[in-house]
Design a protein around this nucleic acid. Structure first.
Lengths: 192, 192, 192, 192
DNA sequence: GATGAATGAGAGTTCATTCAT
DNA sequence: TATGAATGAACTCTCATTCAT
C-alpha cells in the first residue's frame, strides 16, 4: 500500500490537535488548569498520554495554544476587518457580538477569567492577553473620542469594567441571570 | 515562674494561627493556591510543617479559614450593625468602605477572585461565598426598592457587576487606574 | 525505464545502512548512547523512524553493528593478512597504524571507550570486543616472545595498557596533546 | 516526648545521605548512570523515592555529590598535606597509594571512568574532575622537573597515561591481572 | 521501500500528610 | 508544643517500538 501523503498527515494532525484542545478547554474550564492532569486530557481525547506530546510540547504549551486560539476567534468576531476604527453601528454590532460570545464561548471565558486571576498560569500567556486587551482598549477609546467624550480613556475603562463585571457574574451564576435586560441597559447607556 | 494560664495559651494559639493565615494569604495571592506548597507557608511563618497541621487540618482547611475570615471582616466593614437595611447615607458609606477595601484588602481580593474562578478551589468555600453574596444582594435590593426602582433585582445585579468589574480590573492592573474618578461616577449614578 | 536489478537494490540498502550507522556513530560519540534517541538518528539520516527499523532490529542492534564494523576495520588495518604473526617490521607498522587510527577513527574510539565502561551497553557487544582483544593480545605476546622477553604476557599487557592510556587521554583532551613525541617514545621503548 | 535535637537530626541526615550515596555508587558502577533509576537507588537504600529528594535535589545532584566525595577522598590519600611538592619518597608513597586506591576504591574508579567517557554525564562534574586532574598534573610535573627531566610536561602526561591505562584495564578485567608485577615495573621506570 | 501517528511502560520529580521523637 | 524525616500517590514528560497507510 502506498504511504499517506503529506496532506493526509496534515489533516490528521489538525484534527487531532483540535480534538485535544477542545477536550482540554472543557476540562480546564470545568476544574481549573492545575486540577486537570495530562492523563485526564488524554483520556477525554481518547488518545494515549504520549501522543499528546506529539502535538504539544508541554501542558503549558497546550494551554497557550488554547488561549491564543480563543483570543483570535473572539478578535475576529468583534472586529472582522481589523481596522481599529469603530462607528456607532459597529459599536452596536460589537456589543451584540460580545453578548453572543458570552453565550457561545462561555467555556472559553471561564478559562479566560480563571487564568487572569492565577498569577502562575497568567505568566504563560501574558503577552497574548495584554496584546488583546490593548487592541480592545484602543478601539473603545477611538469610539468614545469620536462621540465627544471629555475623557475617552476613563470611559473606555469604565465600559470595559462593566462588561467584565457582567461577564464575570454571568459565568459564575448563569442560571437566572437577566442577561437580556442588562444588555438593553448597556446599549441605552453607551450607544444611544 | 508561674505557668501560663489557659487564656495565655489560647492567645498564643490564636496569634500563631493568625500568623500562618497571613503568610498563606500573601503567598496564595502572589503565586496562586496550587503553586504554593505547605512547606512554603511553614517557612514563611517560621514554623515547621508539622506544626501547621496542629493548627489546620489540611491545606484546604487553611484556605477555607482565610476566606471565611476575609469575608467576615469585609462584611463587618460594609454593614457593621448587620440589620440588612440600607439608607442613602449607609449606601454612600458602603461605597466608601468598598473602595477602602479595594485598597486595604487588595491581597485578599486577589485571592477571592482567583478562588471564584477556580472551580476545584471554589467548592471548598462555596457555602460561605454564596452566603456573603446573598446577604449583599438582599441589602442592595432593599436599597433600590426603597429608592423606587422599577426592577430592584436588576439594578442590584448591575450595581454588583459594575463593582466586580472595576475591582477586577483594578486588581489586575492597579498602576494607572483612575480609581477616584470612577468612584465619583459610581456615586453620581447610584446614590445622588 | 528498466526496473532496478537485485544488485542495485542491495546497493541502495547497503548505502542507507552505512548512512544510518555513520549518523548514529557520530551522535553516540557526541552525546552518549543513552542520550541519543532513535528520532535523533533518523533525523540526522534524513529518514523516518520507521525506516530505521527496516534496517536494524532495534537501537541496540544498530549499536552492535557499529561496534562490529569499527572493530573489523581496525583489525584490518592492524593485521591485514590475519596470520597472527608479528615481525619487528610489522610491529612498527602496527604502531603506525594504531596512531593513524587514533586520529582517523577518533569518533569510533570515543564510542568504543564509552561502551567499555558502560556495563549495560557493554553486554551488547562483549563477545565481539573480547574476541578483538584476545586476538590483539595473542599477536603482541608472539611479538614479545620472538623478541626474547622473559614474561611476554606481562609485556603485552603493559604495552596494551600504555596504548589504552594514551588513547584515552588523547581522546578526552586532544587539543594540546604531544602525540608525536609520545609515539616516538613508544617506538624507542618497545621496538628498537 | 521531647522533640529531637538539632544534632540528632544532623546525624540522621548524614547517615542517610551516606547510605544513599553508597547505594547509588554501587549501582552506577555496576550498571551505568543512565541504566539505574531513582527507584532502584531508593530500593537498594530501603527508603522511598520521595525521601531521596529530601537529601539530593536531583539524580544529577546525587551523582555530583558522589564524584566530589570520591575525588576528595582520593586527593587526601595521594597528597595529605596538599602542598603540591613531591619528593622522591612522596612519589613512591603516591604510587603505593594509587595502587591501594585501585583495589580499595575500585567501584568508584569504575564510575569515574564511565563518567569520563559519557559526554552527557561528564558535563555534570566537569569542573570538579578538571580541577582534580590539573592538581595531579602540577604535582607530577614538579616531580619530574626536580628529577632533571628534559620535558617534565611530556613525562607527566606519559606517566598519567600509563596509570590510566593500567587502571582502565585492571578495572575491566581484574581477574587475572598481574598487578604487582606491573607496579614493580612502574617504580623501576619512574622512581629509581 | 517509506511515513509518522500512535502506544505504553517507565522515567524523574513534587508534595500533602503522618509520625516518632 | 514542635520538629523534620519519611511516605506514597500522583504528576509531567520521554522514548523505543509498532503499524496502518
Amino acid at each position: 500500500m502506498s504511504p499517506r501523503t503529506k496532506k493526509q498527515f496534515e489533516e490528521i494532525r489538525e484534527n487531532k490537535k483540535a480534538l485535544i484542545m477542545r477536550s482540554a478547554l472543557e476540562l480546564f474550564a470545568e476544574s481549573g488548569y492545575h486540577s486537570v492532569s495530562v492523563k485526564d486530557i488524554a483520556k477525554k481525547s481518547q488518545i494515549s498520554k504520549g501522543l499528546l506530546y506529539n502535538y504539544f510540547e508541554s501542558k503549558e504549551d497546550l494551554l497557550k495554544a488554547i488561549i491564543i486560539q480563543g483570543l483570535n476567534s473572539i478578535s475576529d468576531l468583534i472586529d472582522p476587518d481589523h481596522d481599529g476604527v469603530v462607528t456607532t453601528g459597529e459599536m452596536r454590532f460589537m456589543i451584540d457580538e460580545m453578548f453572543h460570545i458570552l453565550t457561545d464561548h462561555r467555556i472559553f471565558l471561564m478559562l479566560y477569567f480563571s487564568i487572569l486571576t492565577q498569577p502562575d498560569v497568567m505568566v504563560l500567556a501574558s503577552r497574548e492577553i495584554e496584546d488583546f486587551f490593548e487592541q480592545l482598549m484602543r478601539k473603545l477609546q477611538s469610539y468614545f473620542r469620536v462621540r465627544g467624550s471629555t475623557d475617552p480613556r476613563a470611559d473606555a475603562i469604565l465600559f470595559g469594567a462593566i462588561l467584565d463585571g457582567i461577564f464575570f457574574n454571568y459565568i459564575l451564576n448563569n442560571r437566572d441571570y437577566p442577561i437580556e435586560q442588562v444588555k438593553k441597559r448597556i446599549v441605552e447607556l453607551f450607544v444611544k
